[in-house]
Amino acid sequence: MPNMVHNHQIDDNANAVVIRVSNVTQQYLSGSFTAVDNISLELRKNEIVTFIGPSGCGKTTVLRMIAGLEYPTQGELFAYEQPIVGPGPDRGMIFQAYTSFPWLTTRQNIEYGMKIMGVTRNDRQTRTQEFLELVHLENFAESYPASLSGGMKQRVAIARTLAQNPQVLLMDEPFGALDAQVRWEMQEMMIDIIGREKTTVITVTHDIQEAIFLADRIIFFTRNPGRIKADIPVAFKGGKRIPRKEDMLALPGYVDLEMQLFAMMREEIQ
């Protein structure tokens, strides 16, 4: 894709830090509620990181600050060592709510982000077709979101965001509103797509199994105030991403990690 030039020069080094969160605090209600308390973390290139934790632990707040949709009360956030000053297409975001534009067809929705970036018509059309196939929506290209199911709407949003070729993909409980079987399909589809697109990913979830399936690394948040409780590499997958969920469940080490996370969640409940 010759026309999709990014403003940011990325260090080609595989270990380059893509996102850096540095001593960030976020307070609401003029200081009386601390959502995020002095958090620091680093995200390396091509990593898939999952933020997990109980409701109100600040995981979504951190994600939104990385997206540039919120500014911290204290501390700083960097993308590719540049301060984050606002939202941009280099950090694509998928929301839990369906955000495909209802007045645009699937095809027009996927094209929309590229249009904003000024991608030429020809490149846009080719790439839209590619992504329609990637998310299996070829047969719904001319449908409006109103006639799509929840899972399909979410696939439109994913295709629209990835078609912009973001450096980082931010997902805020992207499958939270879907039923169990669709959720499973979507998780496997994400592993497939992320593998092809080589994107760095942060996904927020409170589903432990989803966290383990998607992540290379799990960051566990605690609440009141929102802090990082643990930073856990998903070592049992041996640095690989497993395309089928049941294959992952069969691996030795899976249950141990699941129980560890359940135990941490239990502490949060009590």
Binding site: L69, P87, G88, P89, G92, M117, T161
Partner: peptide, 14 residues
């Protein structure tokens, strides 16, 4: 108007 529509557009660089 759903705020997420606006935020989605912002994150796309609008």
């Amino acid at each position: 108007v759903q705020i997420e529509l606006v935020e989605a557009a912002l994150t796309m660089g609008a």
